[in-house]
Each structure stands twice: as structure tokens, then as C-alpha cells.
């Protein structure tokens, strides 16, 4: 049986599959998704659709996101100790993760000023939703995160005893909407377009 060479650029078919050759493009392959370079040609690495503008492959399956250094992530506080707060990362940018990843916020990286006076117990409590920036991969399994920016910190807090919504009242305090009691937090200055970060 004759074997046809399929090493021709695919433009007419709606999908590309791993190994399909893509039209040449000047952009380096490193900052494009779904492609790789072999022998000077660009090839698709996933099953998806070719976007017209930059010849990247848009995946049909939502891809798994690895948080990278500098990414803004949303996480839920699991436990707080004197030296660090353990969190689970639930989304990276606007992409919600399928399963949470572990993260850690060290005491020195809670806020930018007066670092030595930080008390983690007065910054986070379990179940708080925190916006943080990824510093990198720690030596363990956890990502190291920071909230040392005014836009980063607790964005959603609830009173644990009755689940009531709490409202930020200053840069370091949340107030319960039911009882009026105030609690200390590292409050984030929320900007409207969180999801676009």
C-alpha cells in the first residue's frame, strides 16, 4: 500500500493534531501555546484549532495551568501558624484549576512595610480567600506566594461562627456585616478587573 507523506502544511482542515506542520511564523515558539520546533519548522503539539493571527494552537481541551513566577493566583487559607500560612491555590489568573495546588505564604512576605512586626494571626484566618503573587517553587511541594503589594491580600472573608459576610473597612480590618465586630486582616485594595490579571 502506498504511504502518502502527510508533512504538508494544514490550513484547510479545521483541526490540527500532534505532529501537524503549521505555517511558518517569525515569533519564537517559546511564547506560543500548543506548538514546538523541530528542524526549523513549527509543529502542533496538541489537538486544537489554529488561530489566524499568531499561528498558535488553541486547545480544544482546557489546558492544565502551572502557576509561573509573577502570576496572580487566588487561594484559600487552610491553616495559619507563627511562621507561615498554608493555602490552596484555586485559580491562576482567570483559569480555575481542576484540583487545588498547595501554596505557602511566609511571614516575611505578607506585607511590604514593617515586615518584622507582622503577625500572621492578624493577617489571615482559615477559609479566607486571598489574592497573591507567585514568587516561585519552594523546596517542598508548595508554591511560595507573596501578598506584599497593596492590591494583594484578603479579598473575601467570612465570620467563621455564623458564615456572615465581612466588609473591608480599612487597610488592616474587616467588619462583620451581621454583628459589627472588627477583625484584623491583610486587606487587599480590590481593583475591578481582577479576572483580567
Amino acid at each position: 500500500m502506498a504511504v502518502t507523506s502527510k508533512d504538508t502544511p494544514l490550513t484547510s482542515t479545521p483541526f490540527v493534531l500532534p505532529g501537524d506542520k503549521l505555517p511558518p511564523n517569525s515569533d519564537s515558539a517559546n511564547n506560543r501555546t500548543g506548538v514546538y520546533v523541530r528542524d526549523g519548522g513549527t509543529y502542533s503539539s496538541i489537538c486544537g484549532k489554529v488561530t489566524d493571527s499568531k499561528s498558535t494552537v488553541k486547545p480544544l481541551v482546557p489546558p492544565f495551568m502551572c502557576p509561573e513566577k509573577g502570576n496572580i493566583v487566588l487561594c484559600r487559607v487552610l491553616s495559619v501558624s507563627q511562621i507561615s500560612a498554608k493555602v490552596e491555590i484555586i485559580s491562576v489568573g482567570s483559569q480555575v484549576l481542576k484540583e487545588p495546588l498547595m501554596g505557602i505564604i511566609r511571614r516575611e512576605e505578607v506585607r511590604a512595610s514593617e515586615k518584622d512586626k507582622v503577625s500572621l494571626f492578624q493577617s489571615f484566618r482559615p477559609c479566607d480567600i486571598v489574592q497573591a503573587r507567585v514568587l516561585g517553587l519552594g523546596e517542598g511541594q508548595a508554591y511560595v506566594l507573596t501578598t506584599a503589594e497593596s492590591e494583594l491580600g484578603v479579598i473575601l472573608a467570612r465570620k467563621l461562627c455564623h458564615g456572615g459576610r465581612m466588609i473591608p473597612v480599612s487597610w488592616c480590618e474587616y467588619q462583620c456585616s451581621v454583628t459589627g465586630k472588627r477583625e484584623k486582616r491583610k486587606v487587599a485594595k480590590v481593583i475591578n478587573n481582577i479576572s483580567s490579571n
Binding site: 493534531l17 500532534p18 505532529g19 500548543g34 514546538y36 523541530r38 509543529y43 503539539s45 496538541i46 489537538c47 486544537g48 486547545p59 480544544l60 481541551v61 482546557p62 489546558p63 492544565f64
Partner: peptide, 11 residues
């Protein structure tokens, strides 16, 4: 693997 959307060089 293709169904899972994991990047591969080829089939």
C-alpha cells in the same frame, strides 16, 4: 493522551 490535551511531539 490526545484526548487529555497533553502536548506531544507526534502520535
Amino acid at each position: 493522551l490526545i484526548d487529555a490535551g497533553i502536548p506531544m511531539k507526534d502520535y
